[in-house]
Structures are given as C-alpha cells and as structure tokens.
Nucleic acid binder design. Sequence first.
DNA 1: TGCTGTGAAAGAATTCACAGCC
DNA 2: GGCTGTGAATTCTTTCACAGCA
Lengths: 220, 220
Amino acid sequence: MSPYYTQDTMEPLGVPLPTLRRLPLYLRLFEQKAETGEEWLSSEAMARELGFGAIQVRKDLGAVGALGSPKRGFPVGETCRLLGSFLGAEDFSETFLVGTGPLARAVLSDEGLEKRGFRIVAIFEPDPRAPRPSDRKYQPLERLPELVKRMGTRLAILAVEPCWAEAAAEVLARSGVAGVLDLTGVTLAFPKEMAVVRESFCAGLSTLAGNVRAKKARGA
Amino acid sequence: MSPYYTQDTMEPLGVPLPTLRRLPLYLRLFEQKAETGEEWLSSEAMARELGFGAIQVRKDLGAVGALGSPKRGFPVGETCRLLGSFLGAEDFSETFLVGTGPLARAVLSDEGLEKRGFRIVAIFEPDPRAPRPSDRKYQPLERLPELVKRMGTRLAILAVEPCWAEAAAEVLARSGVAGVLDLTGVTLAFPKEMAVVRESFCAGLSTLAGNVRAKKARGA
DNA sequence: TGCTGTGAAAGAATTCACAGCC
DNA sequence: GGCTGTGAATTCTTTCACAGCA
C-alpha cells in the first residue's frame, strides 16, 4: 500500500508545489544526519540550517505524513525512507537521458542521483553526427518511444544542445513518458498532460540576479 | 536611473518570487521572436506556448513595468531589453565560477549564459590536486575573496564536487559576494543577507517525480 | 474586434497561537 | 521545558470581470 496519505483523513495528498520543491532539501539534511549516526532531527534545527521558519518545516513534513515526536524531533532513519520514497526512487527510479554533450555528462557524473535512487537506464542522442562518447553506450533518439513502451519508463532528462531541443522535445511528447526534466534552456511546448520541470543555469542565475536586486531594494 | 518602478506609483517594485522565476521564460520567448524578426508578441500567444494563463503573463510582465499595446501585444525589442536588464546582464554580468569538474564544464559550455549577458570572469578550484583542465585558466579558491573585492563581482556559481562544497561555501560566505547559485546538491548554510538560489539535477528530478505522482492522483 | 491594464474576488501558502505530549 | 501537530488568521498569488484603447 502506498504510504502517501494524510494521517487523519486517509485521503491521498495533494502536496503544494512550493512544498514539493522544499522536500529535497529536507531529505538532504536527514541523509546527512543519518551519515553521522544521529537519530533525531528537530524542525528548528532544520529551519536554522536552511534559513526558513520552523513552522513551515513542520507543515511541509506533515504534508507527506512524516511524524515527529515531542521534545526530540523527527526520527532520522524513518523520515529519510519516507521522504526518499515519496520523492523519487521506488516508483520512478528508471530514467532516460537525452543528450551526450557536456550537460549530459554532468548529469551522468552527478553522485546525487544514484544516491537518491535514480538510475539512468539509457542514453539517447538526436544528432547522428555527434562525437561518440567512448565511455557509455547510447542509442539514436528515434528508438526512444519504442523503449519507453517496452520498459515502462516514465521520466526523462532532456539535456541536448539547444539546436536539437525542439526535435527532441517532439519525440518525447509522442513517446508516452509522464514527466520531463528540461535542462535545455529553450522554450519548449509539451502536451499539458505531461509533467515538466524546467531548470537551467541561465534561468537560475537570472532569478538570482533579480533576487539580489529585490533584496537590496528592501533592505537598504 | 534604474527603470524598475511601477508605472503609476513610482515605487520600487518587490517582484513576487514566483513571478521572478517565470520571467526568464518570457525573456526566452521574446528573444526567439526577436531572432525571427517579429515585432509584437501577445500575452495569449505566450500563454499558449508556456502552458499557463494569459492574465498571469500580463501581470508578470506588468510587475517589471513592461508595457503592451492593445490589439498588438508587447513590443519585442523593447520588452527584450527591459527583461534582459532586469534579470541580469547590466548590473550583474560578471560572475565567478567555483569548480572545474563536469558540472563546471557544463556551465562553461552553456551558450545561454553569454547570450543573456552573463560572463564567467574567473574560475576557482578548491582542490589543489584536481586534474588541471587544459583549456581554461583557473585559480586556487583562496584567492576568491581578494578578487571579489578588487573586481566588485557580486555573483558566484558554486559547482564543485560534493566533498568540497562546505569548504567552498565558507569561503564564499566570507567573500562579500551578494548571491550564490548553488549547484552542489549539498545542504549548505549561508548568511541570510546573501541571496541563494539552489538548483540540482537531483532536486529537479525529485520534484518532477512528485509532480507526476500528484498529477496522477488528481487526474485519475 | 482584439488585446492590454487594473481593481476586486477567490484561492493558496505561510505564519500565528495554542493544545498536547514526553 | 522542549518540541510537535493543528485550526484560525494573515499574507501572498492567481484568477476573474470589466474598463479602455487602437
């Protein structure tokens, strides 16, 4: 039985999007504590470390059904498992990677992914003339839809060069994957039944710059 | 004089964070239109392409002072400049990069950054024994604070291996940079007067997985 | 008619206040 | 005391409805 129910009503939970974005941060904290062998972690300690309110931390954790204990906080091991299974692993561990350039390489060498239970199970390249990376096998992009069907994969990471982004996005759109992590930085249209998370260095930096500016405007 | 004032009240604007995160998407759309030579872009066209409401697009653009024209939409060239200067370029173009691994390489090879006006002006590496990349010069991390002071750089991208993350974060915290784009995926503490944007493949994938799950729960 | 701009209403997310438990 | 869990209050975002303009 899937564990994602609120504690009291036993209704499946719609976790608010902002909460969803914070959950990975909590998970990391719990994992760190697990490594040092600590058993309990309080919302206030987390809040201090992350720079936002303790009540928010509790609400967020409560939203996925995490259960803490008065005076001590949240049990490290159990909460780790709960967050880990909610956030990925388990149902969504198998992921396709589209692209073989520097960005795709960065994804492949990210230790965090496998630590969290995600596994890149196949790599695809849309450009037939792309230099062939020596260290891992990859397939032409056209074969992706077929493999999605055969393997039941539901997640894909799009990390191709900008010029190939649209072509690749179209293939993905028709492929039947449920969600795409779009790292291309190009504005791509996906059917709206697909889940899309867009992330790019550029957008991140822009947001940061805007942030700094806003902070200064308020503070000074 | 800085142009970031609301049109009517002439008060400096506090752009809502969710809006701030969407602005880079609009900017990309405008840039694309600029390339194909089109002069006008309507909020509804944008909305269709991005998959959210037209009213929201108008509110967001309005929040940075963009001004559209009835029946036609928003002027491509002018809005490009406005968004571009609000989001980065101009005041924040010079950026330090910390790290020389695959992730840092991906940042360096990202065409989007320079296209948007950001420039990596120096690269730092905390690990004295890291393999020396042949193609670009870099400096030991200890020199960063000094260079921040001399060059007045305000933004840094943190892209080191996880094991060096904390050490690097400490140096950054004392260095006087105003904002950090943290790509390490490690939970790091920064002084709260610093602006921090965290981004990682892992968090992105986790969010995506949660998203897919939530979508399914609602839809079916 | 076709689109923007805006004040008002609805809906979410965050914060507060306090009850409960060890 | 120290910390969690929760309903109520507040604040922030989004959406709606319509006025205005070319």
